[in-house]
Design a protein around this nucleic acid. Structure first.
Lengths: 209, 209
DNA sequence: GTCATTTTGTACCACTTCGCAAAAAATTAA
DNA sequence: TTAATTTTTTGCGAAGTGGTACAAAATGAC
């Protein structure tokens, strides 16, 4: 990843930083309310540069989300799967989720996807697809983990694997929404813990507490 | 509620119909993406009439939501409380929720509040308050119902009342989001049923099935 | 009919929106 | 130096934004 010497005028911005700044802007304002001028200010790139580098508004958003997902979601996936004990894996996963849904300054901003494009998803098919894909990925993740847990005998035989996965996804959706509504971080953590505990009890799991 | 003879030129619109049409527009497009022109078209009211009748955009939205809430949320509240058996009450409640989150034509549009203003809630304090209030009302509703159930001995003594209430609220949040992402009605129903069943099991409730 | 009253319709305001064309600047290669 | 290449900068344009002023229209009261 060393910088190539390039040929023409060197670019005055770092694409990764720019996309991170753009995502932050989207996260604060919502998709539609974020204008290219806002993005231009946040990234310190002139509008035509933005356009040349990333494309139109939707493409900027998509690229910003992809960068975020590759960095953040991967860490969450590991938290969920590299811990063999289901209870602890879920604890770690939702710890990462809560951390991701709160800004560095502590503001509960919610999810860069769920909390940001929900409003536009019904009217714009492309954005609808984006939201649907995000939901689907989370579902698949939990379904896989619950299947693993069932095979490992961590949850009662005959338990409703799909239902349990959906129940955990619901927690994630709820955390995104609550964060967006301003619920502070400690409360989000408490909600996550209680929900996981109850879900495991419903699963007939080996009692953690 | 009979129409008063009034004095000046009679209004050419029905306020209730206009607010319903406005809410539908908000629901389809999201808050920011819905312009006064869109509302003007949908309600067949000229923009100045809209303004004179309901106020600015945010007030139009608020009044449209209030009308929806008074009509729809009241029915849900009754479904939840007038059925003494917890299981059946929850079934009825979420049946109403799913119905409300799908349009008459069958399009899964989500919640007129949760799915519509989530994007704007972080940037605009007034909208943030609106979202927060909506979340809080649902929480209070479930908390009250679970407290009743505990007193009636429908759930295990010492059960986590707050946690269970939050878990049911999470289902509602998840249904709003999934509907917004295009999940068809039968699937929403199935998700709701499974979630309620699992939540009741976690509560140590009298087994329904 | 005439007046007061209320709603409607037309037109407009200042501002913002996305997107782009074209020129200027900064660099490497020759 | 000159040429080639890439990025930045300036500025524009057509459309849309929320909001409003003001005259025209439609009614009941007198």
């Amino acid at each position: 990843m060393t910088a190539k010497p390039a040929r023409g005028r060197p670019r005055a911005y770092d694409p990764e930083e720019a996309l991170a700044a753009a995502l932050d802007e989207f996260r604060r304002r919502g998709y539609t309310a974020t204008s290219l001028d806002h993005l231009s200010d946040a990234t310190k790139m002139a509008r035509p540069s933005l356009y040349a580098a990333f494309g139109n508004k939707l493409e900027i958003y998509r690229k910003a989300v992809r960068q975020y997902a590759e960095e953040s979601a991967e860490r969450r996936r590991r938290a969920l799967f590299e811990e063999p004990v289901l209870d602890k894996g879920l604890e770690a996963y939702f710890g990462e989720i809560v951390a991701a849904y709160v800004s560095k300054e502590g503001e509960p901003l919610g999810c860069p996807v769920l909390s940001v494009i929900s409003g536009e998803a019904a009217a714009d098919p492309e954005i609808g697809a984006e939201l649907s894909a995000a939901v689907g990925k989370t579902d698949a993740l939990f379904l896989k983990r619950m299947t693993m847990a069932a095979e490992a005998g961590e949850i009662a035989p005959g338990a409703d694997i799909r239902g349990l996965a959906a129940m955990l996804a619901a927690l994630q959706h709820s955390l995104a929404l609550r964060a967006r509504a301003g619920t502070p971080r400690p409360e989000l953590q408490a909600i996550a813990r209680a929900h996981v505990t109850l879900a495991l009890r419903a699963a007939g799991a080996a009692r953690p507490n």
